[in-house]
């Protein structure tokens, strides 16, 4: 199953990912991304990949 990965050092807290898929992404108190789930069922792939790609600093990827 595809898996979401986050580069916590790159994250700047823009929150585009949370707006795109709030069931997968959140921000902690320092404004750094928190992954709520990592495994992405095929039916949710398009939505989660769009949310990951909306990161302005490319801190998120969905790997097959």
């Amino acid at each position: 199953m595809p898996v979401v990965k986050a580069d916590l050092a790159a994250c700047q807290g823009y929150a585009n990912c949370v707006v795109g898929a709030a069931d997968y992404f959140d921000l902690d108190d320092d404004g750094i991304v928190v992954l709520l789930k990592t495994e992405v069922p095929e039916a949710e792939r398009a939505r989660v990949v769009e949310a990951a790609r909306s990161c302005p600093v490319s801190a998120l990827i969905v790997e097959d």
Partner: peptide, 13 residues
């Protein structure tokens, strides 16, 4: 203030 940003973006939606 990222947490405020998130609260505002969620609130706007």
């Amino acid at each position: 203030w990222p947490k405020a940003l998130l609260a505002c973006r969620r609130g706007m939606g």
